[in-house]
């Protein structure tokens, strides 16, 4: 007997579409997770075990020596003090650059939306145009500029460069976020007697956590992963972690210590990873908040 359709439409428990979907997802996950797995197990093996090949096998004898060496005593060019020097250099570069670039860009975006001045659109256009110019083109002029400023070869040079290069994209995302907020809110605050800074601190900032999280993630990962500006502007003593990692991995002297290389790579990548894990939820929310009004 044919059943009359009534009530909720019955759903198949295992539809062919689902099987396809999950298979594809499983492969994608495997594809991305496998290299990480190989790195992790290799970093926990001793060199004799690595020489046996068999890179997928879990370590027979777990050792943390490669991690300690990578952190504390691996040779990075002339010095053999491990990655910790680079780690702290990277922290010293990343923290001030992130704070400075976000502070300036958020104020830029706020001013561009709410305090239009003559030529503000042109100013914004130039800023956006800046994001299309390859960094390499500006490298030599920037070397001269920082030299003339007397900061070339110091951490300040790298911080300065990162803050400048963060401007186009950050200003764009802050401008778009602030533009999506109701203009009447800004007008109400003006009637209530708030000035430029009052509105920024008391009205806009409390509403803008998601976009600030997005900006922090973008900047931390971008600046932490930077190699080019670090190697050009920082000077030998101040190389960031990425440059030191490269020096460890690409060393041409002696035996290639794969376990130390793997440990060093994971250590370097861990900072952006942690940032993602802690704030991924906000990241999605912030991106969505920019796209949809309200």
């Amino acid at each position: 007997m044919l059943k009359e359709p009534k009530g909720p439409r019955p759903r198949k428990v295992i539809a062919p579409g689902r099987i396809m979907l999950y298979t594809a997802l499983a492969f994608a996950a495997l594809y991305y997770a496998l290299p990480l797995y190989v790195m992790l197990v290799t970093s926990l093996k001793g060199m004799p075990e690595i020489r046996m090949g068999n890179i997928f096998a879990p370590p027979m004898e777990v050792t943390f020596a490669p991690w300690i060496k990578a952190w504390d005593s691996a040779c990075t060019g002339l010095y053999c003090e491990g990655l910790k020097v680079g780690f702290w250099n990277s922290v010293k570069i990343t923290v001030p650059s992130v704070i400075a670039s976000i502070a300036i860009a958020s104020i830029n975006g706020y001013a561009l939306v709410n305090w239009r001045f003559k030529g503000s659109e042109v100013f914004f256009g130039i800023l956006i145009f800046g994001s299309f110019i390859p960094y390499q083109v500006m490298l030599y002029p920037l070397v001269i500029i920082t030299r003339e400023m007397g900061i070339f070869g110091s951490l300040w040079a790298v911080i300065f460069i990162h803050t400048i290069f963060g401007m186009p994209l950050l200003t764009l995302i802050f401008r778009n976020y602030f533009a999506a907020l109701p203009q009447e809110l800004f007008k109400a605050a003006r009637v209530d007697g708030s000035g430029f800074w009052g509105i920024y601190w008391k009205v806009l900032l409390p509403m803008s956590t998601p976009i600030f999280v997005v900006a922090v993630i973008l900047q931390v990962t971008g600046i932490w992963n930077d190699f080019l500006f670090g190697i050009v502007f920082a000077g030998v003593k101040n190389f960031p972690m990425t440059v030191q990692l490269n020096n460890i991995v690409n060393t041409t002297m002696g035996v290639k210590e794969y376990n130390v290389n793997m440990a060093a790579t994971i250590l370097t990548a861990s900072v952006p990873l942690v940032i993602y894990f802690l704030s991924g939820r906000y990241f999605v929310r912030g991106i969505a908040a920019g796209a949809v009004k309200g």
């Binding site: 009447e184 809110l185 007008k187 109400a188 007697g193």
Partner: peptide, 30 residues
């Protein structure tokens, strides 16, 4: 004159209440 010095109060279509403040905070802000 700036809006705050004109001796006016304004009510907007979208209410324009400060979302992170309580009602009391909204009233007290100005």
């Amino acid at each position: 004159e700036e809006p705050k010095d004109r001796g006016i109060g304004m009510v907007f279509q979208s209410y324009a209440l400060y979302p992170q403040m309580t009602v009391y905070g909204n009233l007290a802000f100005g």
